[in-house]
Design a protein around this nucleic acid. Sequence first.
DNA 1: TTACTTGCAAAAACTTTGCAGGCGC
DNA 2: GCGCCTGCAAAGTTTTTGCAAGTAA
Lengths: 157, 157
Amino acid sequence: MEIENDFQIIPSYGVQRVEDMLATVVGAGYSNTRARRAVLEALCETGGQATPNRLLALGRAHHPALGLVTVYRTLDILHELGLVRKLHSDAGCHAYAPTTHDHGHHVICQACGQAVEFEGCDIAAVVAAVETQTGFRVQTHWLEMFGMCPKCRKNEG
Amino acid sequence: MEIENDFQIIPSYGVQRVEDMLATVVGAGYSNTRARRAVLEALCETGGQATPNRLLALGRAHHPALGLVTVYRTLDILHELGLVRKLHSDAGCHAYAPTTHDHGHHVICQACGQAVEFEGCDIAAVVAAVETQTGFRVQTHWLEMFGMCPKCRKNEG
DNA sequence: TTACTTGCAAAAACTTTGCAGGCGC
DNA sequence: GCGCCTGCAAAGTTTTTGCAAGTAA
């Protein structure tokens, strides 16, 4: 199996490839344009998350005329198709990360910002406890973890 | 025990009272001002969450000259003192909710927007699985649930 | 009285909308 | 060539900053 880039800690959880995402976009009836390819390429070079502004900077390496508006519009499409998720933190809620699993949540490195999706979030017991405690009926949830990625832990000794 | 308002589903998880929050603010060395009391009162009238703009509208009932900037600055202080948390959702990340527990997360009604804090989020097993899966060392996490509150479920029959 | 606070105005940051021209198919 | 797509400009939102006047202690 081919390693895509530095950020790929565990191959099976690596960054989704540009071609796969592009195929989904085209399959949904959208055109294969230079600007959209540039955004997808940028997204795959980010280490797991990026703000629209950062995607613009990275994308311009592939397509110098790329505009910020197009980044936003492309992210809308990718979100609609389930190819990206929005990440949230107290530091800001402007980052997007590529999706790699059906029911995915992210763990984010507090040192370098790398975001990796994990699977198997089994919190049924917690949900049941909350329903009993509050009387709510829980329909969906949202979970994010923050810590240190393997690389940053190694660099800290 | 006195019921504070409509939004208090379970007494022990009810809205924190203005006086308690004010005592904490004053104890931290901040002045007891009319504007700050107005924001605290607004916060306790919201049903568990509100945006700065909504707090401004509610707060002006108590202090007509209240300005939006002061709402933001007061929220900063309350956040620093751990008295409010920021809520996040795909719909937007502009809402704040009063804190009622040490390690709190919120469950939010998708119909009326009410937010209630719950305690006892035991996700140690999930954290351990994520650490094994990704190689990250998880330091903190963040969890939010979405569903229907008792009142809205009743209204839907 | 003194220092902290406030509210206005303005700026900054982020996101969306309108539109004429360009590009994919 | 037709119609989707793009990028610029401008507008709309949300949040922060500067500052003179006001208020708590």
